[in-house]
Nucleic acid binder design. Structure first.
Length: 639
RNA sequence: GGCGGUGUAGCUCAGCUGGUUAGAGCAGCGGAAUCAUAAUCCGCGUGUCCGGGGUUCAAGUCCCUGCACCGCUACCA
């Protein structure tokens, strides 16, 4: 028996809305699962949601709901999106489920008593010191502060020390490094492996695994005043989902003995490739076999982000292209593992070209001819046909090639091979010109050609099934094929179709999309502006703006983006530090009349004192300083 | 600044461990065919393989270096 295979996606943060990034990972997982099942491997596919943490609690409060009610609601948006995409996970893990919470506590207990090789405790307590906002009920970083105050509550945070438990990551890194270098735990693609090894080379501190003040979380069994921090809680899902702590048989089958594959985008590399293996080692558990980190989508060149509002909603794509075509289009934009750009109009051309013109039209032209000329029944094969051997050979080796591709995560190659076969078949059909044979009454040869084409369609319907399960099932029903013959083994040989079997075709499998129809990537629907934080005029008045002339400018040593400026604000001269070095050279900014906030509290940045802030407009990578239209002396007040 | 990545036809990208005239799809031009979803098939590319060095009998493919862009990271009051 081949090893069972266990495939995971990250669990998605419940505060997010599903976008094509989430969808992509999950589609890949679904594809792999379906493909391995075709090849007779037992496979298990888990996805889910990460639902704890102070941000979730905050969002729930704003929505006027209890935490769990809020989560129940938003989890549905993920489940619906996945259902729309025909994603058939075996288990949907919620970190708020009792099962997960109980098992995480068992993991924590285990870690609590665990020792490192040197006999040190894996978990130790220490103090975390930081700025704490009582309004937010959380620590905030210096960076988040506005004018020394919490941006949300406009209050000064207090310096606070809190007890935290830490995980002794450093003790495990040498061993992890060995395992990664030797590929016992494979990090893919190669460049990501290099990146992780590079990270190990840098100084990595131990990580904090608990929070004292976060109430919406899983309490530590050995200290009820603390709750588990995100890494422990979220990463553990991979084992709690298959029965760690409550179903030894399942856990043994999938985790301990199975081939474990974690799929994710490259942004969470550190946690998965270092924190997670360390936790598992400390708990004495098997490590995953493979981690595959895929790339990011950019949309028309820009990174997808909430703030840019260019996130693509998979539901909108599904509404427009259907689940199967959406899966196809997302998977084929770029090879798995690298970043790629997505352009709205490309989706339509590619849909029409690959799916409608090549595959859909092949089905139409072949089946219609069978319907009209062969009484709607699959004709008998005929071997003496020019070009048939080559076509057969290409079709018969497709399964093997695809399997090899999938094993190495070369998803686009596997799909590309199937489409190439479709093209070759269109060419074969064209070259043999069966419509001429109809007129000449050569029915044997005609039947042979049509039989061969049906065979290719059957084989393709198996190999593209993991990508487009719905449409391939549809195509298979055209040929009266059932699911029993939906196996990779069945795709390896020609002459599986039984002559005389009825065919039927109700409508085109992939109807062409008219170009005039607006290309929908789901992109913009710009987020509605919240107008509940309008300012009172008096509040605005607190900000003092003045025109200032830049007298002198120089780069700040050791910082790429900082310029140290001497400015004249009329009444006095001041020094400010501005993060504009990437856009303005010292020469260029010298002499400019800019707008400065003059009543900010002084701050020290990179060891340089700054007393004021320049105003600038920024969009994506573009940044331009705010200046004045006509000449006016430095010091002029702005209101 | 540190780490990683990318730079190949108009566009999106393939090119594994170096080896004949550098490829695919899309778009464009010309043609064939008419079974089919106005779909298909054929033909057409003088591309500085980012620049500069080097290793080699041989480099898009390895090494060094420069440039541009992207991501993570530090500093952006």
């Amino acid at each position: 028996m081949p090893r069972p295979i266990y495939i995971t996606t990250p669990i998605y943060y419940v505060n997010d809305r599903p976008h094509i990034g989430h969808a992509y990972t999950t589609i890949v997982a679904d594809l792999l699962t379906r493909f391995y099942r075709l090849s007779d491997r037992d496979a298990y596919f888990v996805t889910g949601t990460d639902e704890h943490g102070s941000k979730v609690a905050e969002a729930a409060q704003q929505a006027g709901l209890s935490e769990i009610a809020f989560c129940d609601q938003t989890v549905e948006t993920f489940k619906t999106a996945w259902e729309n995409l025909s994603l058939s996970y075996d288990y949907f893990l919620r970190t708020t489920s009792n099962r997960h919470k109980q098992s995480v506590q068992k993991i924590l207990e285990k870690l609590h008593t665990a020792k490192t090789e040197n006999g040190e405790d894996v978990i130790y307590s220490d103090f975390y010191e930081g700025l704490y906002c009582t309004g937010c009920e959380k620590f905030i970083t210096e960076k988040e502060l506005v004018d020394g105050k919490c941006p949300h509550h406009k209050t000064k945070p207090e310096k606070l020390k809190e007890k935290n438990y830490f995980f002794r990551l450093s003790a495990f890194l040498p061993r992890i490094k060995e395992l990664i270098e030797s590929d016992e735990m494979q990090i893919l693609p190669e460049e990501r492996k290099r990146e992780v090894l590079g990270l190990i080379g840098q100084e990595l501190g131990d990580f904090s695994l608990s929070r004292e003040r976060v109430k919406w979380g899983i309490p530590l069994p050995f200290d009820k005043n603390q709750s588990a921090y995100v890494w422990i809680d979220a990463l553990s899902n991979y084992i709690t989902a298959v029965g760690y702590g409550d179903d030894p048989d399942s856990f043994d089958k999938w985790w301990t003995k199975g081939e474990v594959i974690h799929l994710m985008a490259k942004d969470i590399l550190k946690f998965h490739c270092l924190y997670w293996p360390a936790m598992l080692m400390a708990a004495g558990l098997e490590l995953p076999d493979k981690m595959f980190l895929h790339g990011f989508f950019t949309v028309d060149g820009d990174k997808m982000s909430k703030t840019l509002g260019n996130q693509i909603d998979p539901n909108e794509m599904v509404a427009f292209y259907g689940a199967d075509a959406t899966r196809y289009l997302l998977l084929t934009q770029f090879p798995l593992g690298v970043d790629g750009d997505v352009q709205a109009k490309r989706f339509i051309t590619q849909y029409n070209s690959d799916l409608a013109n090549d595959l859909g039209n092949l089905v139409s032209r072949v089946i219609k001819m069978v319907l009209v000329n062969c009484g709607g029944k699959i004709p008998a094969p005929h071997k003496e046909i020019e070009g048939l051997d080559a076509l057969m050979a290409q079709a018969e080796e497709l399964a093997e090639r695809s399997y090899a591709h999938i094993k190495h995560f070369r998803v686009t190659n596997a799909i590309g091979d199937a489409i190439s076969l479709v093209r070759a078949t269109n060419k074969f059909f064209n070259d043999r010109a069966p419509w001429k044979l109809v007129k000449e009454g050569k029915t044997d040869e005609l039947g042979g050609i049509l039989y061969a084409c049906c065979e290719v369609i059957r084989i393709v319907s198996i190999l593209l099934y993991p990508v487009m399960p719905g449409k391939m099932t549809e195509i298979r029903s055209v040929l009266s094929l059932d699911s029993a013959s939906l196996t990779l083994a069945n795709a390896r040989t020609f002459f599986e179709l039984v002559p005389g079997t009825k065919v039927k075709l109700d409508q085109p499998v992939f109807p062409r999309i008219k170009e005039e129809k607006e290309a929908k990537t789901g992109a913009p629907a710009p987020a509605e502006k919240e107008d509940d934080n309008l300012l009172d005029i008096s509040e605005f008045g607190k900000v003092e703006l003045r025109v200032a002339e830049v007298l002198k400018a120089e780069k700040v040593e050791g910082a790429d983006r900082l310029l140290k400026l001497q400015i004249d604000i009329g009444s006095e001269k001041r020094q400010v530090v501005a993060g504009v070095a990437e856009h303005y050279s010292p020469d260029k900014i010298m002499g400019m009349k800019v707008v400065v906030v003059t009543n900010l509290k002084p701050a020290t940045i990179r060891g340089v004192e700054s007393r004021g802030m320049l105003l600038a407009a920024k969009k994506g990578k573009k940044l331009t300083l705010v200046t004045v239209a006509d000449d006016i002396p430095a010091g002029a007040k702005i209101s």
